[in-house]
Computed example of a mutant assay.
Amino acid sequence: MIEVERTLTLDHPLPDVVVYLADFAHTEEWDPGTVSCRPTRAGAPVAKGSEWDNVSEFRGRRTELRYRLVRREERRLTFVGRNRTATSTDDMSFEAADDGGTRMTYRARIEFHGLARLATPFLRKEFERLGDAVVRQLPGAVDRHFEAGARPAG
């Protein structure tokens, strides 16, 4: 299993950040590996149990995972994606920052199944680089989302 954890601060209030990140389709905007991410039920409200079909590219290969929102709380979101070769968990926890922004801890865990498990030690550095890229891209994606006129939560 590979685990990556990063902490970052976003310049938007906690409720707004949680609403934005709860819609996993937004991973196209902030996750460098995501090629596409579509809800399985277009137009349905985002709630615990919502699912998305995600296509990611990693080391030149595309893979598809079905992600499900398994935890949606005021200060925490957890998504679990699965396919035949891997289970991926994206866990996000939030706390209000003193300046009105949001401090976020992002934990990504991937567990490979079957023969793919043998590649785990060789892929750790690649996933660390992806974690660094998320920290670089996520703040700008959140900023652009709200600059484009998205309505704040509440």
Rank of each mutant, 00 (worst) to 15 (best):
V19T: 13
K48S: 06
R71I: 12
G43S: 12
S93R: 15
A25Y: 07
S50W: 07
P39H: 02
V18L: 05
A86R: 04
E64F: 10
S50V: 06
R82Y: 02
T40G: 08
P15S: 08
D16W: 14
F79S: 05
D53W: 00
T87Y: 07
R6P: 04
H12L: 08
T63H: 02
T89I: 13
A22C: 10
Y67H: 14
E28F: 04
G43V: 14
V80E: 15
A22T: 14
D91M: 13
E74Q: 13
T27F: 00
A86F: 00
W52S: 07
E57P: 03
L8I: 03
T9H: 12
P45F: 06
T40V: 14
K48P: 01
A22F: 11
A97Y: 09
V70E: 15
R59E: 15
V18T: 07
D91N: 13
G60V: 09
G60S: 13
V35Y: 01
R66V: 15
P13W: 01
L69M: 06
M92C: 10
D11E: 14
S93V: 14
T78W: 06
S88P: 00
H26P: 00
R59V: 12
D16F: 13
F24S: 07
E5Y: 02
V55T: 14
V17A: 05
T63N: 02
E29G: 02
V80N: 12
S56E: 09
R41I: 11
C37A: 12
H26W: 03
E73R: 15
L77G: 11
F94P: 04
L14M: 05
A96K: 11
A44I: 01
E28D: 11
T9N: 10
G60N: 13
D90L: 10
N83S: 08
L77A: 11
T7G: 01
D23F: 10
T63Y: 03
G33M: 11
T27R: 04
L65I: 00
T89P: 01
R75C: 11
V17E: 04
T7R: 06
D31T: 00
L8F: 05
A42Y: 06
L14N: 01
S50F: 02
N83A: 04
D11F: 08
P32A: 08
R61F: 10
T63V: 03
R6M: 05
P45E: 09
H12S: 05
V55W: 12
R61S: 11
L10V: 05
W52E: 09
A97F: 01
W52Q: 07
P13D: 06
A47I: 01
A44H: 09
R61G: 04
S88G: 00
R62C: 06
Y20K: 07
R66P: 12
D53K: 03
H26D: 04
P32M: 03
L77S: 12
H26L: 02
P13F: 00
A42F: 09
R41F: 03
R68L: 04
Y67V: 06
T89R: 10
